[in-house]
Design a protein around this nucleic acid. Structure first.
Lengths: 110, 110
DNA sequence: TATCTTTATCGTAATATTGCAATATTAAGT
DNA sequence: ACTTAATATTGCAATATTACGATAAAGATA
């Protein structure tokens, strides 16, 4: 088929998958990198930073927004996008927990 | 088109995107969860744990393997899959760094 | 009001992903 | 050699993603 059977997995599994998927494209990673670099919200200039057309960037921003990774406020003419702090703390937690579990095991059978 | 322009982004951006993408499906998250739960390698019983057909699970395992997240050793008749420890440490680092940068800023303009 | 700027949306093409039945492969046991 | 068990591969259908040109929408500015 092609449709993902999200209903067969736990909420946590689906949540991590959704967040990871949103970060699963270099353009979207680059958008986050840029948001961190400029140390403020971005109001439009991302399009000039990325090697992609404006509609494509707009689409990637939308996807990041849908996943809850960034949020956008209308600021007069432009739109101000910024990172949602909580989400990356959550991602960090997810992977820290996994890394810790692996550290504890050390069952190097492979 | 549909093809991702990986050559336009940095190696780090592409690396994170590849790893995140591999974790961007609940079935693959569930596979990792199970690998952590059983506290050893998995030799076949993942198919019984997941609500997916054997070829589908095999495909997801292949994708995790391609991303370098798990590795598989042939163990006689069965195949022994286990997590590559380094990769999750790397993922943790990636997101910890981002979370730290966000913490430092606190430019709550939005 | 006319125009510019900025961002979103629509439409569409190319490609990738997801899922499974059928089949192949490989090693073990008989 | 035959059979069984475990896993991979192939082929295919359904859907999703990625990318962009054209166009729309909405506020700013002249």
């Amino acid at each position: 088929m092609g449709a993902t059977k999200t209903d067969h997995f736990t909420d946590k599994q689906n949540e991590l998958a959704t967040l990871a998927k949103a970060m699963g494209h270099p353009a979207r990673v680059a958008i986050i990198d840029y948001l961190l670099k400029v140390d403020s919200c971005i109001c439009g200039d991302i399009v000039n930073e990325l090697p992609l057309a404006q509609p494509t960037v707009s689409q990637h921003l939308k996807e990041l927004k849908n996943a809850g990774i960034i949020k956008g406020n209308i600021e007069g003419n432009a739109i101000c996008y910024c990172i949602d702090e909580k989400v990356f703390a959550k991602l960090q937690q997810f992977f820290t927990r996994i890394a810790d579990k692996i550290e504890k095991k050390k069952t190097n059978c492979c």
